Amino acid sequence: MKYFLLAVVFLSSISVSLGQVSGQIAGGAGGAFGIGGRATTDPFLATRLAKLHKKNTIEGEILGSPYLNEEFIKSKVYYGEEYIGDYYIRYNALNSEIEIKETAYPEEEAKRLLADDQLRIKYGLRELRFTTYINKKGETKNGYLSIIEKGKNFTLYHRLAVKFSEGKAAVNSMVMPIPSRYAQFTEYYYQQEGVNRIDQLNQKKAAVLKILDKEDRDVVNTFLKDQKINLDDEEDLIRTFEFINTIDTSS
């Protein structure tokens, strides 16, 4: 009987020890987004995280990337004017979503930051803002834009867009297969001061002049000619809107 009681005590102690080990929560920031089954303790993020969208399984080679940068970049996150903290961010331009981690450790599972028009993310050299805009087809869309010029007359936005094109298999030995690819391209949007909408910018000179007041078109047209502006070049486009924002429209 004595040996039986000793065995019970010994097994019970092993069970308790194993339970303590298996129930341990990883300390530090590394466990905050779900490592070890732990939810984030950040009150701001607690209700703003979701699983990443499932990726489509595509066979074969895929050229390009849906990401602005494949790496997670340490970035500052704001909600309105309130600084929330530094997090590791990767921007999926194809899905127009922010992937977020609290550390750079590869074993930490990334989450999707739910979209909110109060979010601002200092990501590299750009600041991503979730907003509503109207594309050239007249469709109302939601996504992340970056302000690249802001003045008293206009705000100019940059948008990295990604399009996925599915490849085609070779129909015979004489034809090369076409791989699937992610194609990145840039779009620009503008918002006139006092107008509550953001529209895609047509970068043709006539179209840019058309968004201006009639009395300002000649002076801007002269600027474009004198400065030999190429509106397809981002630096020249920014210079143009910097000039437009110097025009006094109050008279």
Rank of each mutant, 00 (worst) to 15 (best):
N142L: 07
N172C: 11
P177W: 07
R159N: 14
N172E: 08
K136S: 15
Y144Q: 08
V171H: 08
N142H: 11
Y144P: 04
F164V: 05
G151K: 08
K168R: 14
E166I: 03
K137Q: 14
I147F: 05
F164W: 03
V162T: 11
E166Y: 10
H158W: 05
M174W: 10
K152E: 11
K152W: 03
S165A: 08
N142R: 13
F164N: 03
A170C: 08
Y144V: 05
M176S: 13
H158C: 04
K141W: 05
S165E: 12
K141L: 15
A170R: 12
S165P: 02
V171I: 13
K163P: 02
K150A: 10
K152T: 06
K152A: 02
L145P: 05
N153D: 05
G138I: 06
G167A: 11
H158V: 05
A161P: 01
A170D: 11
K137I: 00
S173Y: 12
F154N: 08
K141D: 05
Y144C: 03
G151V: 09
A170Q: 09
S165G: 00
A161Q: 13
G151P: 09
E139Y: 06
M174Y: 12
K163I: 08
S165H: 10
P177E: 07
L156V: 05
S173A: 14
L160G: 04
L160Q: 11
F164D: 03
N172T: 05
E149N: 15
V162S: 02
R159E: 10
T155N: 04
I148Y: 02
G167L: 09
S173E: 14
F154D: 06
V162G: 00
N153E: 03
E166K: 13
N153W: 02
K136T: 10
F154W: 01
L160Y: 00
E149G: 02
V171A: 11
K168P: 04
T140P: 01
H158K: 13
K150R: 12
E166C: 00
A161M: 10
F164C: 02
G143C: 02
M176W: 07
A170P: 04
N153R: 01
A161T: 11
K163A: 10
E139G: 01
R159D: 04
E149P: 06
A161E: 14
K137R: 12
M176I: 09
L156Q: 05
M176Q: 12
Y157Q: 03
Y157R: 04
K168D: 10
T155E: 07
G138K: 06
G143Y: 06
A161S: 14
N172D: 14
